[in-house]
Structures are given as structure tokens and as C-alpha cells.
Design a binder for these strands. Structure first.
Lengths: 345, 345
DNA sequence: CTGTTAGCGCGTTCAG
DNA sequence: CTGAACGCGCTAACAG
């Protein structure tokens, strides 16, 4: 049933396995004619040599590090990927980077099991995924060190995350300080499919900032939907149609902020003259768009995550817990002080 | 010298290897106390079981596909990655995706050799890299199928590329049709470090378009430098200081076009009122910036590349050569007809 | 130049 | 419940 082996090749070529191995490895010590016989046998049988057997025999150990995340191409993941990549190349380990994407939330467990079962990786970097206690112990049991790039850590030292609540507060405070009072929140509906509480945490920050400024909470100003530019666009349209539309919007991510801005412009209004918009993340795009936002050092978090994982693999004894630099308000061109004239909406 | 094996563990635990294997695999049929003995032996020796041996023994074959490219995070690579990823998940193969980045051009050969030598991958997708004849035959000899995502194919059917010359002509023609006569080219100095002729090809297109419109070539309007936004910015500044500055710029990539635009604005001029700018690639960013550009279907090229590689791996008999859809002019907001008033520069 | 044989480290029988 | 022996597919060392 299985694929043909060197023994099969040797037999049909009428030679010994050693010879086959030799031609496979370009050992020059083979006569041209036997070489030819072997080659044709290989071709006839469709033989392909087994990676694993070869590796076991040669003793060559190539180590793999897996990085698993829901997506790889949205800006915020690209940034982290860059950091991951940098950490990997900086300490020129000979680690291979294997990328896994969790195509559907339901399949996360299954994928993790496969990874563990096939023992494909020596370490795992888990990004923006919610790992159950069972999954954790499975990983530990299998002896696979892992670190979490998460949105909420409970004091674990193999976990790195920004302070999303504080970030949400920071963004909202900026708007409030500018004099805005009708401040909306545009974010993902929570809990989302992957069980990540990002939106909820930033929303909590929004709430607390409102409270510390003594501003009454208005549920009409909370617009939740699926993640992405399009949804943010639609959500914003609804916001603009309110009897008293907001004069400022805090979008939980830069990409959603862009959606908000486009909706505002499509409605014939200007940013920031008529409505201020602040995002979150500070992905590369935001620089080009001139978006005011909260920088959460995504690239660095990827870097640190990979760095600690490498430590866990190389010197398991002492891994130092790392901490991200504090969140930063980056003021660019999409927010400005509240102007009493505005709000004619 | 090597790492401890189950034999070592068995010996120090005073049991047989079979028992060790059982506790390693959660076989419940082990008495709690021997289990305990084994565990502590494992811990004491710092034992970690060998992936390869396990795989060889269980017969589990996990196949790896490698994707190698100079970088992974610039927009044009992200787009291709998305396509690669999609192709991989669409036909739910159980292939792992291993990402390699060629940190330095000089190390490309070395990295390829390592990949071949360690027989890490079953197939290789080579993106934006110049592969020598020797490297090709090394790959072939090792039985590793590969496909090229390149910028110039010589009729090979394991190679996918856009028609860069035609694209360059397309972009330039657009500017010319709008009435511009002083048209500049901003691109990478060629040949670049990785030996990729992209810039040169698009430049050829630029030249041919100029010629077909009977416009004299002016070397002052050709600005070449390292790739990236910053360099394009500087290059553009020089262009603007010319006695007769260009009224339109063709930048060989979107990211460079963005650099041009920023330089123009920094000089107090407007795009497109004072100077028109067209890019190349149509990466996601361009949509947000409203950049006129040439769409080269990057995502689709990644998809097609992975698709044909999978075919080569699964049904080596017949792989159909694929062809990218034609390049497309995408007119957005950064180009407009030449206005005789402009050029006061 | 070539056939034979002994491991590589682990899982899994098969007897105890 | 546990220990011993075999085999996974290949490489390398050793005789011819």
C-alpha cells in the first residue's frame, strides 16, 4: 500500500540499497550505467524518498516553530508577523517558521490537535486566539512550549498583551478633552467568533472615560457589528442618521476608522471639521491616511512573543516575562476640538 | 553527546522503553506509581521526544510546502501571500506552509542548499527571486518541484508573471493620452540586489510608450534609487527642482507613488491639479489613497502559483500552464488631463 | 565501484 | 500491567 521505498527501487533496478542511496545523494562513486538503471527505476516507480527516514538517519534536526492565527493578511497581523520574522532572523537560529491559519473558529481545536499529534512543531506562537484550559494542558502535556499574543493576560508570563481597557480610555479621553460630548463607539460585536474580547475591553475603556468625565452613557452611540471596513461604513451611516448624531467617533481599529471616515465623507461631511475620528492600532496604513489613533506596538509585540518563545526553547530555565511599552496616543489629522457650529447633522 | 532518548529515560526510571512510550502517549494502562517514576525521570533528564523518530514510526507523513521570498510584509508580498494561503486552504490539503525570507541576497544560495539538504519541503514556491541555472538543477535533482512567481518568464510552464513591459507602457500611455508631455519615471535602480528586473522592464515599457507617441526621451526625467517610499520622496524632490519639472510621474510601484505624492504636497503643489501621479501594482493601500495605478492581480498570482505547485505534487502527470489575467488600468484620483497653466513649477 | 548490515529513536506488537 | 523485540525508510561504514 505505502509508497515505494529504496528497497523497491533497488529490486527493480537489480542493485543494492546502498547503491540507490548513493545515486540519491550524488555520490560520484557510481558507474554511469548503474546510475542510469537506478534513475529509470526511480522514475518508473514514481519513487520519492522519505523526509523523515532521511532525517532520522542523518541525525539532522531541523526545528520548526509554528505561528497560528486567524488570518495573516490584515494589517494588524502583518505588523505582528514582521516582528515575529525579525526576532527569528535576528538570532540566526535555524528554525523554520510554519504558518497556520485557523480557517474557521470551529476547527481551532482540531487544528491544534493535529499539530500536537503530528508533532510538527517544537514551539508555538499563538496569536489572537482564545485557548481553552484543555488546549493549554494538551500543549503542555505534549511538551510544546507556547506563548500567547493575546488581548488579555491573566498574569501568565508566557503571554503578551496591551492594556486594551486603558487604550480605550485613552482614545476616548482624547476626544473628550477636545470638548466632544457626543462620542460614539464603533466596534466588533462581542464576543466574536474566536472568543477574543478586544472590542469588549476597549469598550470598557470607552465607558470608564465617559464616566470619569461625568458624561451620561447613550446606548445609541454604541455601534457594534462584524469586523471590517464595510461594516464600519454601514454602522456609521446609521450613526449619522440619528436625531443627534455624534460629533466624534472612537473606532476600535484603524481599518474600521477608515470605514467610518468614508461613510462620513459619503454623507457630504468632513473629517475632522464636522466629525472627529480616532482609531486604534496604528497600522502602517494609518500613517498614509493621516489617522489619529492609539499605537499599540504590534510589531514589537510580535518580536517579543517570538523572542520569549525562543528563550523557552533554548534556555527553558529562565524566561524573563516581557512587557510591552505603554500605549501611545498618536495625533494626526482626523481629530480636532469640538466646534459648537457642528452637529447640524 | 546527543539528547537523551527513551532508553535513557527507561534506564533511569528502572523500567522498559515500552512503558515510557506508554506514558508519553497517555496510554491509561500504566500504574500511577510507575507513571510517576517515568515522569520524574523525563523531567530529570530534560528529555524531549524526537519528532522524526515518532513520525517515521507512526508512518504519519506531514507534507510541507515552502514559500521563499525576499520579504513578507511589504504590501505587494502580503497580497501574494493571501493568494497563496487561499489556494492552500481551498483544497484542504494537509500541507504545512513554511515561510522563508532571504535575509540577504548573498545568502540565497546557502538557504536553498539548506532547504534541499535538510529535505524540509516537498515543494517550493519561489517569489520575486532570481534563480540561477545551477539552483534550478539542484532543486530538480533533489526531486523538489517548484514554481516561480517571477517578473519575467521564458516560456517555462512552472513560472507565472505579469507582462511588465506592457504594464509600463500602459501606465505611460495613460499619462500621454491625458496630454502630458513631460513625463517622469521613478523606479528602482537596476539591476537590484536580488537580480529582479522589474524596474527595468517597466522602464522599457515607459520608453516604448514615449517612442510610440513620438516624444523625445529626456534622461533628466528618469529617477532611479533604492526601493521604498523614502527614496521616492527624495527622488521626486530633485525632479521638482528641475528647470522644467515633469507634469506627470509614473512610479514603478504604488508605495513609491505614495512617496512621490508626499514630496509633491510637501513642495506646496497639488496632486493631480499640478502634477499627475500613477503607480503600479494596485495594492490595498492604493484604494484608500485613491491612487491611479496598474492592477497586476497580485493575489491571484499567488493563488495560481500555489495551485500549480499543488498540482505538481498531487498529479505530476499533467500540470496545466496558467496565465494571469491582463494588466488593467485603474483610474482613481491622482491623474488628470494636462493643464497648460501648470508647469509654473 | 557495489552489496550487506547496523543503527537513527520511537511505537507497537507479543509474550509474560 | 510491563519488558523485549521488530520495523518504519534511509544513511553510512564495512567488506568485498
Amino acid at each position: 500500500m505505502g509508497n515505494p521505498t529504496i528497497y523497491d527501487v533497488a529490486r527493480t533496478a537489480g542493485v543494492g540499497v546502498g547503491t540507490v542511496s548513493r545515486v540519491l545523494n550524488n555520490s560520484t562513486r557510481v558507474s554511469p550505467e548503474t546510475q542510469e538503471k537506478v534513475m529509470s527505476a526511480i522514475w518508473a516507480l514514481g519513487y520519492r524518498r522519505s523526509k523523515v527516514a532521511r532525517q532520522l538517519s542523518t541525525g539532522i534536526q531541523h526545528r520548526n516553530i509554528g505561528a497560528i492565527m486567524p488570518y495573516i493578511t490584515p494589517p494588524s497581523f502583518v505588523e505582528r508577523l514582521r516582528g515575529i520574522q525579525m526576532a527569528l532572523s535576528h538570532q540566526d537560529n535555524d528554525f523554520n517558521l510554519i504558518l497556520y491559519t485557523v480557517s474557521e473558529p470551529d476547527r481551532q481545536r482540531e487544528q491544534l490537535l493535529t499539530i500536537i499529534d503530528q508533532s510538527t512543531v517544537d514551539g508555538l506562537l499563538i496569536t489572537a486566539l482564545n485557548i481553552s484550559d484543555e488546549e493549554r494542558s494538551l500543549l503542555t502535556q505534549a511538551g510544546i512550549p507556547f506563548v500567547l499574543l493575546s488581548d488579555e493576560c491573566n498574569g501568565e508570563n508566557n503571554c503578551i498583551s496591551p492594556d486594551n481597557i486603558q487604550g480605550g480610555a485613552l482614545a476616548t479621553q482624547h476626544l473628550l478633552q477636545l470638548g466632544h460630548r457626543r462620542v460614539a463607539y464603533v466596534g466588533d460585536a462581542f464576543p466574536n467568533n474566536y472568543g477574543i474580547p478586544t472590542s469588549e475591553l476597549r469598550y470598557q475603556g470607552y465607558l470608564s472615560a465617559l464616566e470619569s468625565y461625568g458624561i451620561a452613557f447613550n446606548s445609541n452611540y454604541v455601534a457594534l457589528g462584524v469586523h471590517g471596513e464595510e461594516a464600519a461604513y454601514t454602522l456609521t451611516q446609521a450613526l449619522l442618521n440619528l436625531p443627534e448624531p455624534p460629533t466624534a467617533i472612537f473606532a476600535m481599529s484603524d481599518i474600521q476608522a477608515v470605514g467610518c471616515i468614508q461613510a462620513i465623507r459619503a454623507a457630504g461631511l468632513r473629517v475632522p471639521e464636522d466629525i472627529s475620528v480616532i482609531g486604534f492600532d496604528d497600522v502602517q496604513l494609518s500613517r498614509y491616511v493621516g489617522l489619529t489613533t492609539i499605537r499599540q506596538h504590534l510589531e514589537q509585540s510580535g518580536y517579543m512573543g517570538m523572542q520569549t518563545l525562543l528563550e523557552m526553547l533554548n534556555t527553558p530555565d529562565q524566561v524573563l516575562p516581557r512587557q510591552l511599552p505603554p500605549l501611545e496616543l498618536i495625533v494626526r489629522g482626523t481629530t480636532q476640538p469640538f466646534n459648537p457650529v457642528q452637529g447640524a447633522g
